[in-house]
Design a protein around this nucleic acid. Structure first.
Length: 571
DNA sequence: CTTCTGACTTAGCACTTTAAGC
DNA sequence: GCTTAAAGTGCTAAGTCAGAAG
């Protein structure tokens, strides 16, 4: 039974709604719009072909978007510049359009400098001024940041509408640099219950639509102009509706645990099937299970960056090595996955898988689909038959969570102190992040901060050596004198050595942890793949305060798990 | 079957705040 | 107290997947 945590009181969850109904009552204040454009002061100039040019307000606004990004690599990319210029020209007056014909002749540097000075000034603001801004933000949050869903006041995740700007896709995105237009009340669909106080649009405006659909969880939606997709305002992860769904997700993964052996035997059998379609499905599922690959939906060419998942892998994304570095039947994967993050891995596979892959690749061009008889829809329909609620992504959740549980068992040393146990936890977390290929760009200051830490360690080592010498001489002294005072000195010197040893160890642990974390992002798996009850149970078992593992936001999101899990919880 | 649409989860990066170390 | 690194938060892009439409 799911219970939600509300005002520090545990309340049993309301009786479950009929299929598909998400709420009975929903009331909110609507979205907060982006602040209107403030034209630049007269003294901030834009230059075209070396000459000052005063831009119309609309053209100027779009120009400032580009000026603000001038330091970013994006603005040097040809596609970005081309897309930007095309969209910018649409905002220009006909006069501007006829004058400004070449982006390379545009000089935004003065505008850029102005914005840099502005942000510098913001940093230099007095305490009072900063406090005022903070209070204003809090007021906004208080008024618009919450809604009432059924009997609960709930925090809204993103109550602010995305401001206009230049689209920044990830990776090699064909639409980078396009203008993301300003969202107006007339674009907005409000969703709330009929008997609620319906939010009013800003004066002089009206909503596109007000609807009362309790089969969905969103409060506000609009259609963005880059991909034509719908954006939503929804509730915070701490909300009942999100927490319950999250809990369900892990329960589905736990059901997979019960039948995963059977499913594995099944797909191994299917490697031998007479039907090509079945063989492809079985090999793809093996990759999804073994390597935690994503399903891989088809994507429209030219609309997004060229990235793939399992079902959309192409022949060019794998290389087959009958033998590599002393291992047999090695598959070398090299492709761009979600967010254009590279997946690179050399994996020894079973002979049957290898032979099947050779078969799938026969007579194909590099750009042909590896699994030409398979897509995510076929795969998920098959999975649905194997277990209710089973889809490709459940394997990622399952394998991530079971890996954490196993790794925690393996790595936790009962004799370790708390920092060392936490290091073990982070290592277990890291094993999952590696499995799921959660990468990050190494922090810009990484090298420098690593050197700083190393010099701290060196200094600490010297300090330890000194302390040990002092202890030694104190001991010798005590041996000669045999009085209380020198005995006490020995004791205090001993303690000093111990303290420094602990400090040194802490620093060394920190260095190891940081080095191992250089290119790996732990947050994503922690937030989305690891059953929080595993972590809660581990904390309870070893007496680790939960705050050491989850920060405030995470504790709010996982309140249900913190409440539910005992130290003997098994995923 | 294929394509499209809608709703929802998952993702890394940029920015802000806090904490640690001098 | 000031500086710097780490932690935390906000933002919004980019996936998954189901169901409707064609």
């Amino acid at each position: 039974e799911f219970r939600c945590l509300c005002s520090n009181l545990y309340t049993p969850r309301e009786t479950r709604y009929p299929e598909g109904i998400k709420w009975k009552f929903l009331e909110h204040k609507g979205p907060v719009f982006a602040p209107p454009y403030e034209p630049l002061p007269e003294n901030v100039k834009f230059y075209y072909d070396g000459k000052v040019m005063k831009l119309s307000t609309k053209a100027e606004e779009v120009a400032t978007f580009f000026a603000k990004m001038l330091d970013h690599e994006y603005t040097t990319k040809e596609i970005f510049r081309k897309n930007f210029f095309k969209d910018w020209r649409k905002e220009m007056t006909s006069e501007e359009k006829s004058t400004i014909t070449n982006l390379s002749k545009c000089d935004f540097t003065h505008m850029s400098q102005y914005f840099k000075a502005q942000s510098e000034a913001r940093k230099q603001m007095s305490k009072e001024e900063k406090q005022k801004i903070k209070e204003e933000n809090e007021r906004l949050l208080k008024e618009y940041g919450y809604c009432v869903m059924d009997n609960h006041k709930e925090r809204i995740a993103n109550f602010k509408i995305e401001p206009p700007g230049l689209f920044r896709g990830r990776g090699n995105h064909p639409k980078m640099g396009m203008l993301k237009r300003r969202i107006m009340p007339e674009d907005i669909i409000i969703n709330c219950s009929k008997d609620s106080k319906i939010p009013s649009p800003p004066p002089g405006h009206k909503w596109k639509e007000v609807r009362h659909d309790n089969k969905v969880t969103w409060l506000v939606s609009w259609t963005e102009n880059i991909q034509g997709s719908i954006k939503y305002i929804m509730l915070n992860p701490s909300s009942r509706i999100k927490g319950e769904k999250d809990w369900q997700k892990y329960e589905t993964a736990r059901r997979l645990k019960k039948c995963v052996d059977k499913i594995r035997n099944q797909y191994r059998e299917d490697w031998k099937s007479k039907e090509m379609k079945v063989r492809q499905r079985a090999v793809a599922l093996y990759f999804i299970d073994k390597l935690a690959l994503r399903a891989g939906n088809e994507k429209e060419e030219g609309e997004t960056a060229d990235t793939v998942g399992c079902c959309s892998l192409r022949v060019e994304h794998i290389k087959l090595h009958p033998e590599l570095d002393g291992q047999e039947y090695v598959v070398e994967f090299d492709f761009l996955g979600k967010d254009s993050i590279r997946y690179y891995n050399k994996v020894p596979v079973e002979k049957r898988v290898f032979k099947n892959l050779q078969l799938f690749m026969e007579n194909k061009q590099p750009e042909d689909d590896l699994f030409d008889r398979l897509n995510t829809s076929i795969l998920n329909k098959h999975l649905q038959d194997l277990m209710e609620g089973l889809t490709a992504k459940v394997f990622r959740t399952y394998n991530a969570s079971i890996t954490l549980q196993q790794q925690l068992k393996e790595l936790t040393n009962p004799d370790d102190n708390i920092p060392a146990k936490i290091l073990s936890y982070n290592r277990a977390n890291r094993a999952v992040a590696i499995l799921c290929n959660h990468q990050r760009a190494p922090p810009k200051t990484f090298e420098k901060s690593m050197m700083n830490l190393q010099s701290k360690i060196d200094a600490k080592k010297e300090q330890l050596a000194d302390a040990r010498r002092e202890l030694k001489s104190a001991k010798a002294d005590a041996k000669v004198r045999r009085d209380e005072k020198s005995k006490k000195t020995v004791e205090s010197k001993k303690k000093a050595v111990q303290r420094i040893e602990e400090q040194l160890m802490k620093l060394e642990v920190q260095a190891t942890d940081r080095e191992e974390n250089k290119q790996i992002a732990l947050g994503t798996s922690k937030l989305n793949y690891l059953d929080p009850r595993i972590s809660v149970a581990w904390c309870k078992k070893w007496g680790i305060p939960i705050e050491k593992i989850y920060n405030k936001t995470q504790r709010e999101k996982f309140a249900w798990a913190i409440d539910m899990a005992e130290e003997d919880y098994e995923f």
